[in-house]
Design a protein around this nucleic acid. Structure first.
Lengths: 196, 196
DNA sequence: TATAAGTGAACGAATATTCATTTATATTTG
DNA sequence: CAAATATAAATGAATATTCGTTCACTTATA
């Protein structure tokens, strides 16, 4: 039997995200994507059941990449400060290395695909994160708050900075570039908020 | 001459956001919207130049609503703690009262429309916010950090909580409902982070 | 009566998806 | 070892819809 061209598979994914980021949901049409990736439209239907399935599978792929990057060198038993710091570094690295993938994920988050995607969320990842927080709370390294409150304070500021960085400007018209110093400065504030 | 039916204008806006939130960019087609709003497709082109223009104008309208709500009772000369508290209350109220409008705005934020929209951003609003922070920094009520860092720590956690509230669940599968108590709890942490 | 609001049908272009065929290769056969 | 075969990958053209937009026309009112 004929073997599947793995290279082709990767090209499709890459071009799909590229099209999506550049032209949004409207721009990601099966025919345009096929042309862009140099394959027949019919080929897409070998890889994916339909357009919706393609978008969800694309999300799963990107999510895995994100989880892998985020967990690099991480252990839920780490001390709170060290663990959170590593999380920030890993997450920031992912954002900088894969801006289009991040863009794609953020756009999915508020789209009708959000529900279908979050069902495919890696449970192990969430559990690892949860374990880390609970360890820290138990050791009294972190104020005792619901996980949602913790997560909001711990990571939302970072993603907000990344958002500004990606759009190239801050709140006003001035240019904004997220550098190591700004990350550290913000991290210190977050740490202050979460320590008992 | 014949007068424009203001009621019709409002129905179109309402149905447009409804369609957009329910079915995303793909779902907001001119013909579907016309049918939904009970007007001719051609009528839409009296109100808007084309589909892109409609989406941007829709955003401008929603943004104004958001700014108005956020500024209710606010004065940039307020003390930091009182001002920030009011901001949280106003913003939370907007999110709860107009969930679809918030949904719409968030989706635009990561779409190709983001740039066109942010050009129409109300400068006065941004200036008022900026003035408030700078007053607070001058009075030494807030740590001296770039506005972007301030904004990220001050508001991103709130919007993250709202996001979870709107999706109906937190990080795990458990139900999550954002209540007054959770808001206050998070607010206290943010305040701790930002105070010198 | 002048004028802008509002219409419904129509346009070509683009959409998602399918299907009868062809192509490449892993495996089996002689 | 080489040739035949089986099988999944890959295709390009065609499907019926739906898309955004326009235009000749009617309607309501200042």
């Amino acid at each position: 039997m004929r073997t599947r061209d793995e290279n082709k598979e990767e090209t499709i994914r890459q071009k799909a995200i590229e099209l999506f980021v550049k032209h949004g949901f409207d721009g990601l049409s099966m025919q345009k994507l096929a042309k862009e990736a140099g394959v027949s439209p019919a080929t897409l239907y070998i890889y994916y059941k339909d357009r919706d399935d393609m978008i969800v599978q694309l999300w799963v792929w990107v999510m895995k990449k994100m989880v892998d990057t985020t967990l690099e060198g991480f252990d839920p038993g780490m001390s709170f400060e060290a663990g959170l710091k590593l999380q920030w570094q890993n997450r920031a690295r992912f954002c900088m290395e894969y801006p289009m993938e991040l863009h794609f994920m953020e756009q999915i988050k508020y789209s009708p695909y959000h529900e279908a995607c979050s069902k495919k969320m890696d449970a192990k990842f969430i559990n690892t994160m949860g374990e880390f927080v609970h360890n820290a709370i138990r050791r009294k390294e972190v104020v005792k708050v619901p996980v949602e409150v913790y997560w909001s304070v711990a990571f939302a500021p970072l993603y907000q900075l990344v958002k500004m960085h990606m759009s190239g400007r801050g709140l006003r018209d001035e240019k904004f570039v997220l550098d190591e110093k700004t990350i550290n400065q913000t991290f210190k504030l977050v740490l202050k908020a979460l320590k008992p």
